[in-house]
Each structure stands twice: as structure tokens, then as C-alpha cells.
């Protein structure tokens, strides 16, 4: 009896926690399909806001810019994170902790500071005006730290002595990576790519400062907010959430697949 009621409390707690995490997001998705977005009760379904959004040309350009920044950041951050993780875990040395710490430190810097300082740095020191390229680089500083966390977590389970074995059997370092390390650990790198892609794709502060007038989805949404929350924004939020959810499902499946292959 006592045991059963304990179980009921646990289920309730879990449900409450999930509601806390996902309630607002589910609400936005719900509202995006409602005619009255101010007080959407009782529900009256419509696709009107989604079709409206689709017809807004400025959102198309912004989407393309966001994808470009996300893709570029994903590639750069994954490359750097992979190299850093190998340095830290494969070639362990007394300074490995410090090396890892300095790579992870950007996690603790406010993105808005990275935005402002990277803008000032590229303007003043590099003489480079704000551009998608600059925004990609600035996002990469932040995303590399996150990507490194993902790669480190996966690489920690990799047996680096496999690399030793490959080298003894005649594989040069690059060949060793290509033949052994990569085929076993690729889910780590794909995971890092997806995480850094999403970080840059969704980023407002860093991209905003480095891009000037060039829109991305978050900067456009941010700008639109000043004229009140329009119904298209709900639709935008719903679509992005769907896309992110889909990506994370892929990520999860790949990591599951990856662990099966490593064991």
C-alpha cells in the first residue's frame, strides 16, 4: 500500500517536471495552430499562420543565413573539438586538464559578450566589417566548447590502445584515424556537429552583433517582437521546435548506435 502510493508520487513528480520543461514549448506549438493567438481557448484549428509565414520572403533569406551560419559553425567547431579531444585524451600529459579547461572556458562567457567583443575585435583589429563569415567564426568560439563536451564524453569510452595497435601494424597516424578511430567514433563527431549547428542556428546575441542588417531567423524574430508578438512567430517557433526535435532524435539514435558498435 505504502509502496504503491510512493510509486504514484514518483509518477506525478516526473509528470510535473516534464510539464515544467516542455509546457511553454507545447503551448507555443498549440497556439500556432489556433485562429485567436491572444486567447486560444476553446481551440479552433487553422493553418493560416503557417501559410502566412511561408509567404514572407524575408524569412526565407533569414532561414538561409541561419542554416549557413549553423553549417559553417558545425564544421569548424566539430573539427576543432575533435582535434582538441584527441590531444586531451589520446596524448595525455600533465597539462591535459589545463588544455581542456581553456577549451571549455568559453562555456562560461555570456554569449552577448562574445558577440560584442568579436565584433569589436574584427572591426578594429582585423578591419573586417560584420558578415556571415564573421558571425560563423564568432559562433564557432562558443560552439567549440559545447562540441568538445560532446566529443570528450564519447571519446572517453574509446580504447586508444586500438590506435596503438593500428600503428604497430603499419598504419601512419592519418591512416590510423581514417581506418580505426573515425569508423568507431563517428557518432561523437556527428553529435558535436548537430549540437554546434543548433547553437549557431538558434543564436541571437553573437550573430546579431556580427551581422549588422543581415537577418537570421532569431534576429528577424527578435526584430519582429518589437511590433508585438505576431501569429507568424508562433508558427516559426513551432516549426523550429519540430526541426530541432527531429535532429535530436537522429542524434540520440546515432549515439545509441555508436555505443553498440563501441562495446
Amino acid at each position: 500500500m505504502n509502496h504503491r502510493s510512493g510509486f504514484g508520487v514518483q509518477v506525478l513528480l516526473l509528470a510535473a517536471l516534464y510539464l515544467f520543461l516542455y509546457g511553454p514549448i507545447l503551448y507555443v506549438i498549440y497556439v500556432s495552430f489556433q485562429i485567436d493567438s491572444i486567447w486560444p481557448f476553446p481551440p479552433t484549428l487553422t493553418l493560416e499562420h503557417h501559410t502566412d509565414l511561408w509567404q514572407r520572403r524575408d524569412y526565407h533569406a533569414a532561414l538561409w543565413n541561419s542554416v549557413t551560419i549553423g553549417f559553417g559553425t558545425g564544421l569548424i567547431a566539430t573539427l576543432f573539438a575533435t582535434l582538441a579531444a584527441m590531444a586531451i585524451l589520446k596524448y595525455r600529459s600533465p597539462g591535459s586538464g589545463l588544455v581542456a579547461g581553456l577549451f571549455l572556458a568559453p562555456l562560461f562567457i555570456a554569449p552577448i559578450l562574445i558577440g560584442i567583443s568579436s565584433l569589436m575585435f574584427s572591426r578594429t583589429v582585423l578591419g573586417m566589417p560584420g558578415s556571415i563569415f564573421g558571425a560563423t567564426l564568432a559562433n564557432s568560439t562558443y560552439a567549440t566548447a559545447f562540441a568538445l563536451l560532446v566529443v570528450l564524453a564519447q571519446f572517453a569510452r574509446y580504447d586508444w590502445r586500438l590506435d596503438d595497435a593500428a600503428m604497430v601494424f603499419g598504419a601512419r597516424p592519418w591512416r590510423t584515424f581514417w581506418e580505426i578511430t573515425l569508423p568507431i567514433t563517428w557518432p561523437a563527431m556527428l553529435g558535436a556537429f548537430i549540437v554546434s549547428f543548433l547553437l549557431a542556428f538558434n543564436n541571437l546575441e553573437i550573430s546579431f552583433y556580427n551581422l549588422g542588417a543581415t537577418p537570421t531567423l532569431p534576429t528577424l524574430a527578435w526584430g519582429a517582437l518589437r511590433h508585438g508578438i505576431s501569429a507568424e512567430l508562433y508558427a516559426l517557433a513551432a516549426i523550429i521546435n519540430f526541426a530541432v526535435f527531429a535532429l535530436f532524435t537522429v542524434l540520440y539514435l546515432l549515439l545509441r548506435l555508436g555505443t553498440i558498435r563501441i562495446d
Binding site: D159, R161, G170, I184, R261
Partner: peptide, 20 residues
């Protein structure tokens, strides 16, 4: 010389077969 230019064979502890 690096290991890949020594032309020796090795049997490792825990076998270290390539799992993939």
C-alpha cells in the same frame, strides 16, 4: 623510428581487435 616503420608484429593484452 615510429612503430609503423619497424615491421614487427604484436599481440596485445585484451587482444585489441578492431571491433568494426
Amino acid at each position: 623510428l615510429p612503430p609503423y616503420r619497424r615491421g614487427i608484429g604484436m599481440v596485445f593484452q585484451d587482444f585489441l581487435l578492431f571491433p568494426h
